[in-house]
Design a binder for these strands. Structure first.
Lengths: 338, 338
DNA sequence: CCATGGCATTACATCGATGTAAATAGTCCG
DNA sequence: CGGACTATTTACATCGATGTAATGCCATGG
């Protein structure tokens, strides 16, 4: 087996020094046209490719970012991942994706760079992480948090205005005359995650409309999957005093709920309205199509990548953490009368 | 900013040589208990973490695998990715995911390790790759192909029996009395991809049943997304002689088709049957639930990871390419009378 | 008491690329 | 033609970890 050519081999082939080859590779300006061409030819002839390990060792950078999400098969994260990859690509970076399954220990590992050894920085979408997990973390590893404001820790944050978004969605349902709106996936206590923020927005909408708040309508779920939505919906409609609308905190929950309702002979939006969050592609093709809060994923990905790369480019002098509020809009589809 | 401690720092702190620290880290057996403990303590005290670039440079391995798929937001690939990550984890590997968007140049880059510089091997799910792209490729980079048999090239292959699977699905529809079955996403010519193999199986089923083959019912699509299924379905049912069943080559196409049919007032399975491929989670919760050919994703992922890692572990003496046929089963749900 | 051999530890070189600083080659001007 | 610069190119050290081979240590046996 022929070993991979090294920069030294190229140098010999081209009759120059290794450093000159390096200069050509890195587009150093003071290289004569003749030498440049000769080196290029040598590179082609030998099929030379930079060895990134060597480069990284020398430069101290990998050019790789870690994107750490709970689950890739939650469509929102897959869609987000693609945007992040595109953005990173545009800036010459590569993305390494990690799944945490929402487990705190894995998220912790991510922020401490344990998983991310090869990585210059991390974009993390936390689920189980506690605020205190971030205090005192090793700030040598730049970090951007997505979704939740896990508060202080010298990390930038990117997310939509969850409170406002939930409030708008709720107001939409109220405007449709719905009065008993359940929050599937909501939370009243526990860490300040998106679930709590959205529940808060929901409550604000009720308050503004002068309606009473019934904590029984806030239904936590074990995970944000189809089946969790289905179970929650089933439970809700078999109550004595069932809801007339479901505000589901993601589209999977919503679609699972719609299906469960269908199985019990209830139809959406005739009997109940359903609204989700995330605007995954499935929501545009489901029966009925799903109303949903669409976060601007492109904006989120772009902001996250840029914040991260900026911080990587300028270690030391970290400016204070940045808070980027990405756009969102409520898309009304069939599931709430659209 | 405090620089990251190096192995040398640990050595000094523990009062031993760098190599001894390395020995401890790598569980070399001949290290006295005392020394081992001292080094461990030093590591903890300093918060030392191996620098993988250095290690890789020395060892020539990264411990990372590349998983290269067309699109992560095609649920099948996201689900597959998770399984691959789990398997790799189990064997101490890390997975780097790349998207190609189905573009040939990106797939080519993948098999030549261009993207995959940091990678010991590649698992590729090709879409546009031609058989000849693999002949004469640099076999220093172990490669496992998924899905299609892109034929010779010294690469292992993992996939289901596409011909058989399509045949079974078709036979199921025939058994239901359907006679004009369209193949959405099918192909009669072009590279020997899964689409052609499945179309072949479909044809075999027709032949076995003594039914004529109508090439007009084989409908290619630009991509395998919801909207492509929707378009194809719309086009099909507005024909003079519309089909009575759709065999869609993935679940996205199928679900998009179901939606389009719904919009034209046709209901599934009363008016038409629809069957998909992949068994993505959405298919279990759609209205109607979707019949589909479920490939054993876990098996596929496991086989792919093991084949790849085995080949990485033993470079040179590559045994001949292995062909692993993963299991599959037809799951009949509401969309075809289940 | 010394040779023998196994275990524990270490010195040194090396993986491949690149920053620094110095050397060499050119160019222009007086 | 020599000096002063500038443009190119190069020598050398270094990033961090680890394989190789050598050394040191200790116990056992003759």
């Amino acid at each position: 087996m022929v070993p991979r050519p090294r920069i030294k081999d190229v140098a010999e082939y081209a009759g120059v020094s290794p450093k000159t080859v390096s200069n050509v590779i890195n587009d150093y300006e003071h290289v004569s046209e003749r030498t440049r061409t000769a080196v290029r030819e040598a590179i082609d002839a030998l099929g030379y490719r930079v060895n990134l390990a060597g480069r990284q060792l020398r430069r101290g950078r990998t050019g790789m970012l870690a994107l750490v999400v709970p689950e890739l098969d939650v469509a929102y994260f897959a869609e987000l991942a693609r945007h992040v990859m595109l953005e990173a690509d545009r800036r010459g970076g590569t993305v390494l994706i990690h799944e945490t399954g929402g487990r705190r220990e894995r998220e912790l590992a991510a922020v401490s760079g344990f998983d991310a050894q090869f990585t210059d920085g991390v974009i993390l979408s936390p689920l189980a992480l506690l605020p205190r997990d971030l205090t005192g973390r090793d700030t040598r590893l730049p970090l951007v948090l997505l979704g939740e404001r896990t508060a202080p820790g010298g990390a930038d944050h990117v997310g939509i205005d969850n409170v406002l978004a939930a409030r708008e969605a709720t107001e939409h349902l109220l405007a449709r005359g719905r009065r008993r709106i359940a929050v599937v996936g909501g939370a009243l206590r526990g860490p300040q995650g998106t679930d709590r923020l959205r529940t808060h927005g929901y409550r604000a909408a009720l308050g503004a409309a002068g309606l009473p708040f019934d904590s029984g309508l806030v239904v936590p779920v074990p995970a944000f999957h189809w089946q969790d939505g289905a179970r929650a919906a089933t439970e809700l409609v078999t109550r004595r005093d069932p809801p007339d609308a479901l505000l589901c905190l993601n589209d999977h929950l919503a679609l699972g709920a719609v299906r469960a309702l269908h199985e019990r002979g209830l139809s959406v939006p005739e009997d109940l309205d359903v609204v989700g969050f995330d605007d995954i592609e499935a929501s545009r093709f489901s029966i009925p199509t799903l109303s949903t809060v669409a976060p601007d994923k492109r904006d989120i990905a772009r902001a996250a990548v840029h914040l991260l790369m900026d911080r990587i480019d300028r270690p030391e002098d970290g400016p204070p953490p940045v808070e980027h509020v990405a756009g969102h809009r409520l898309i009304v589809r069939e599931s709430s009368g659209g």
